[in-house]
């Protein structure tokens, strides 16, 4: 269930498939759950003006960001019948093809997790002060902006 104090959502570097797989495994003891839903944000090798994105370097206003993640979490528990919810976001360099965001929601029933996951991911994109520097293969850069 939800905690009162904001957790640290950030992890240094990419989120590994081992970590994600292990998170799923840990929920096998929670047998009231009937449905999980997972969002994985992956760094895309966008091509812009002939240059390809090789990595994104993430920074954040960490205290405010953790508070915002906490608020999103509280709002989601309020709005949806969730058994549990986990959010992890990368800081530092994440290469193209690697995972930078992992959102994991669980509920007794499937309809809830589809709605909840979309709500949470959209709120993260809009409200959390995380910044991304897209680094091209030639080491030049531009700043990523969420739409």
């Amino acid at each position: 269930m939800s905690d009162k104090k904001p957790k640290n959502v950030f992890r240094e570097g990419a989120i590994s498939s081992d970590f994600i797989g292990n998170s799923i495994y840990k929920h096998q003891t929670k047998t009231s759950i009937g449905a999980h839903n997972i969002f994985l944000g992956q760094v895309r090798a966008d091509e812009i003006d002939g240059k390809t994105v090789a990595a994104i370097e993430y920074t954040a206003y960490e205290d405010m960001a953790n508070q915002k993640f906490h608020d999103i979490r509280e709002a989601a528990f309020e709005k949806f019948e969730l058994t549990c919810m986990h959010i992890y976001h990368s800081l530092g360099t994440v290469k193209a093809g690697e995972i930078c965001l992992f959102v994991f929601v669980s509920s007794p029933r499937r309809k809830v997790v589809f709605e909840a996951l979309e709500y949470i991911v959209e709120a993260i994109k809009a409200d959390v002060p995380v910044f991304g520097k897209e680094i091209f293969e030639d080491t030049s850069h531009q700043w990523k902006v969420n739409n």
Binding site: Y61, P129, V130
Partner: peptide
């Protein structure tokens, strides 16, 4: 942001931490 909450230009300064936040790019 003032004290980690977004504010407008008309908001009063309360002496707490201010942050200038460029467009968000999480996820």
């Amino acid at each position: 942001a003032q004290n980690q909450e977004l504010v407008s230009l008309e908001t009063e300064l309360i002496g707490l931490e201010i942050a200038l936040l460029p467009p968000f790019a999480g996820g």
